[in-house]
Nucleic acid binder design. Sequence first.
RNA 1: GAUCGCUUAGCUCAGCCGGUAGAGCAACUGACUUUUAAUCAGUAGGUCGAGGGUUCGAAUCCCUCAGCGAUCACCA
Length: 495
Amino acid sequence: MSDTAKNITDPIEARYAKLEEAKKRGMNPYAYEFKREHKAGDVQAKYKDLADGAETEDTVVVAGRIVAMRNDGMFIDIEDASGKIQIFCHKASTPAEELEKLDLFDLGDIIGVRGLVRRTPRGELSIRAKEITLLTKALHPLPEKYHGLQDIEQRYRQRYLDLIANEDSRVTLRARSKIISEIRKFIEENWDGVEVETPILHGIMGGASAKPFTTHHNALDNDFYLRVAPELHLKRLIVGGLADCVYEIGRLFRNEGISIKHNPEFTTIELYKTYTDYKDMMRLTEELVQHLAMMLYGTTKIKFGEKEIDVKAPWKRATMIDLVKEKTGVDFLTITDRDAAAAKAKELGVHVEPRWKWGEIVLAVFEDKAEADLIQPIHVIDHPLDVSPLAKTHRDNPILTERFESFINGWEIANAFTELNDPVEQRKRFEAQVAAREAGDDEAQMLDEDFVTALEVGLAPTGGWGMGIDRLVMLLTDSHNIRDVICFPTLKPKK
RNA sequence: GAUCGCUUAGCUCAGCCGGUAGAGCAACUGACUUUUAAUCAGUAGGUCGAGGGUUCGAAUCCCUCAGCGAUCACCA
């Protein structure tokens, strides 16, 4: 060991000392470049059949982070994004000036290695080092090697440490990326989807029932809402004929509680396609989810904790009214009087707000009594009109709409409808929302005059669809907390 | 927002009915050398989340605060 680094037992100080020593020896501890020629995972795959104890003359050049050192650096595990490989440094085959560098290395350092591929007698594929280069000195100690990083708060606040230490986190977040890119591919290949980007700063809150974040633009001296849904802008693009099918994948913001299923900013996809209706959107939902499960696991049967969920299409369909009837014995289609419905709901032990209309009461009973049991995929269809201000009135029943929500594992994962395109009717629905807002419903929507104008210009018959991507990723990766599928979940800033 | 719980070394965790701080990993010094959480011997490392209180004495009991978690409420 060098004099500078000698006898320093503080892990961080020792690393600084080694950093200085490396400089003193003419090395750049933050190298400008390194011509990596091979990834660890590719080497592992290529030499998968190399026999135990076999030596090759094949030279490889790899680079990665030191994640383990054994026998005083004789064995070093390095890891890159593709995998891990062992570096073998032995005085019989590694030049002495290279071996001297081992003194300066710590867990977490990033090094480059040129050497020969071999497999040890014990069966570990290794690189017999000929040349080792320090590429980036790590000044911060790594989490404990066996247990990884367990502290939940630190895992989210310092995700970089979590990713280095915990393979599960890497697997999940990589799966998320794969799922999203596969969704794009599926939508573009099978639905002629054209991806668009609509504003996040909204002057008027609309498109969903939710509490918004507000912000302020200084130059315009105007408050804006962060969008709670992209719906109204996407339909404007359909009106304009930008494409027959537009979709947007992006972040929504809702100023509501945080839980294992809710993050204040979350990602959805919304899609609109002319000359389709809600039945087509059911097909889209089940075919897409089935496709993603097949891509990831080669089967439609996915595991979520102890549960096995089969996402094979087609999925079961049931009306919201029928599901409520099944669970409670009450048929709300025969109780369309608001007060009678409220009385019945209270009888069932469901809390009812005085301002609620028939549809809100039915929805509350559904959420209370039926939702949690919807484990296997199901499309819940024909929502009350009162709770669906942007959906087209059901062709067979004026108090319902052509809408569905898809549930898996008791969670709503998709929401879609035949789009309301009658501007006069839409204005009435908005006015009902405004009245609800004035009556104290702070999640009710606002009247968007320009959107009504767009409908006056004419929206072709159109089906619309939205899906929560975070929850879908949770289901597909057996993740039980939404934070596990978000790189940087919302946390209170630490003081 | 409410209730309950957690916070001890860089990391993972012990620490009982209040008696003055422990282990493993990581670090450091050596030994050993084809290891797989390498092994062996030794060294160093702490304002016990913050502040206040009770007490001769507090990591431990009480209060306040902060962060985090679980459940509930709201919601996707």
